[in-house]
Design a binder for these strands. Structure first.
Length: 512
RNA sequence: GCGGCUGUAGCUCAGUUGGUUAGAGCGCUGGAUUGUGGAUCCAGAGGUCGAAGGUUCAAAUCCCUCCAGCCGUACCA
């Protein structure tokens, strides 16, 4: 049998796990500082509690992993952390204090094609405020998202872009795309606008019009809008993109040159232009007022320097967001293992989902939140070499020279003393027959020190402490193996009683 | 789902117009060295050439189907 794993699922090694834990600790610290508390829900939910993603007859396995329980009820692995939170809140609505502010991290599962940084099991880290109707709660989310990125060391390398779905809906209605008969077109428009950062204004124009051919020759059908509607949408969203791109360029240039951004005016002007345009072209449009409140709070927090921006092209998912939407995107190119630049997309996203709890309770419960794609973000950071995945130092290795029980007990005692002193240590558990293998093992594990005691040392009550790091440096000057072996480099003999103290001294010297 | 590219040793790859026993480097195992890592030298293991079918005297090589991986695209909660 060939050992293999389902595609889109990966094993994680020590470096991965440590890097993830380090990331999550930083994210958690930000959320807690903002006053959020942890909560946890199970990985399985009844399928109907998750939303409309029932296993359907056309593509029974599309989207979610589902199975039937003993009593034939459908259950599914969660595909995000928002739907389970809505269920949890609805179930405990009478006892939970609102606004209910929580965070939670966990694995989620999606049965779809994996891509760069995209897996079928991946980690998300969410924060939500349930029972908060005002735009201030949305603003807080966007600012916290920005703070989190900075805590991860990404200052100047991300942008949080905000929008409001009601604005998009209003604009479309104003240009004659309202009504049930245009539902299909509206969907197409939203999808096209969502591609703005990916394909640019021209690509979006193609998608709004006759369709677009991708680089493999595959063709995407367009919305087939008449020219005047395309122009109206462009002046709303695409024209603004031009300034958005130049603003982004200014921000990036400032970030790479390391200087603080002095001209917030760029972004101030961009926002003012946007609000002036909206108020003149689409007066009293629902959502614009919310966005302007949010923008004021963003300004008050000092994130109006390009880190948080208003961007009318942000769409996000079409499923449950009802108002404010926002997403976070990295501003540096991401490469894959082969060093090829790869389309990456957003690493975090969120928004307002006022209808999600109502599904269960029938009463209106406004809520807002966001999700960070931890696995995705980590892929980006890994390929960028920005991951602090410095492994723990290897363990001090107590080598096994003699295999009689009494000697083994002596080695065991040494290793236990070292551990008792808080020093990472292990006794060689492989086949001790060839002593050279033990040092090779220590070398490859990154052990800083090897402890050696043969019968003559034992008789004299001493041990050899071998500094492997120093030895490796000295080895460079030795070309003859005979000499290398007999030199016993970087090695000193100390009384057994001083073992812990001497090991500590050597470790300190190595780190100093 | 659609399109393109790629599948040869654990890894990275070579393999001539189809030609005899499919190779290299790295890695791995053992030895030179039964009490010392690195370097060096010697030896060895490891392959249904992604899978099945077809053409041929002869297929890693040509054809067909399938599978897998990567990239793009669609969908994306």
């Amino acid at each position: 049998m060939k050992p293999r794993q389902p595609r889109g699922f990966v094993d994680r090694d020590a470096a991965d796990i440590r890097a993830t834990e380090a990331m999550m600790a930083k994210i958690k610290a930000v959320y807690e500082k903002y006053g959020f508390d942890p909560v946890e829900t199970p990985m399985f939910e009844y399928t109907d509690a998750l939303g409309k993603f029932l296993p359907d007859t056309d593509r029974p396995n599309a989207g979610v992993f589902s199975m039937q329980d003993d009593d034939e009820q459908w259950m599914s692995l969660r595909y995000d952390l928002t739907a389970p939170l809505a269920r949890h809140f609805a179930q405990n609505i009478n006892t939970l204090q609102t606004p209910y502010r929580t965070y939670r991290a966990g694995w989620v599962f999606r049965n779809e094609k994996p891509g760069p940084g995209r897996f079928r099991q991946f980690m998300q880290f969410d924060a939500d405020t349930v029972g908060a109707p005002g735009p201030a709660a949305d603003a807080e989310m966007a600012i916290m998202m920005a703070d989190t990125m900075e805590a991860l060391g990404l200052k100047g390398q991300y942008v949080v872009r905000m929008n409001n779905r009601k604005v998009l809906d209003g604009v479309m209605e104003a240009i004659g795309l309202g009504g049930d008969e245009n539902a299909e077109k509206r969907l197409g428009v939203l999808r096209a606008l969502d591609k703005l950062d990916k394909f640019g204004p021209l690509g979006v124009r193609e998608l709004l019009g006759n369709g677009r051919m991708d680089e493999s020759g595959d063709f995407t059908t367009g919305v087939e809008l008449p020219e005047w509607q395309i122009q109206a949408l462009e002046s709303f969203a695409l024209a603004d993109l031009v300034s958005s791109q130049s603003a982004g360029a200014v921000y990036r240039a400032a970030a790479t040159s390391g200087r603080e951004i002095e001209d917030k005016e760029v972004f101030e002007e961009k926002a003012e232009t946007y609000f002036a345009y909206m108020n003149s072209q689409f007066p009293d449009l629902e959502g614009v007022r919310d966005l302007s409140v949010i923008w004021k709070l963003v300004k008050a927090s000092g994130y109006d320097d390009g880190r948080v921006q208003i961007d009318p092209s942000v769409v996000r998912g079409l499923e449950y967001y009802t108002g404010t939407v926002f997403e976070c995107e990295l501003t540096f190119p991401v490469t894959n293992e082969k060093g090829e630049e790869v389309v990456f997309g957003s690493v975090a996203g969120g928004g307002r989902y006022d209808g999600l709890v109502k599904r269960f309770t029938g009463q209106d419960v406004p809520a807002t939140g966001f999700s960070i794609g931890v696995s995705r973000l980590m892929t980006a950071l890994k390929n960028l070499g920005k991951l602090d995945d410095h492994a723990l130092p290897g363990p001090v290795l107590v080598t096994v020279m003699d295999r009689d029980t009494e000697s083994l007990a002596a080695y065991q005692q040494m290793v236990q003393e070292l551990r008792g002193a808080g020093i990472r240590a292990e006794m060689y558990q492989g086949n001790p027959k060839q002593f050279g293998k033990q040092l090779q093992y220590a070398d490859r594990r990154g052990s800083p020190i090897a402890i050696i005691q043969g019968s003559d040392e034992r008789e004299r009550g001493v041990v050899q402490i071998k500094d492997l790091l120093e030895g490796a440096r000295l080895a460079e000057d030795i070309t003859d193996n005979e000499e290398w072996r007999s030199a016993r480099v970087a090695q000193r003999e100390v009384p057994v009683a001083d073992l812990v103290a001497e090991v500590r001294k050597t470790l300190d010297a190595q780190n100093g």
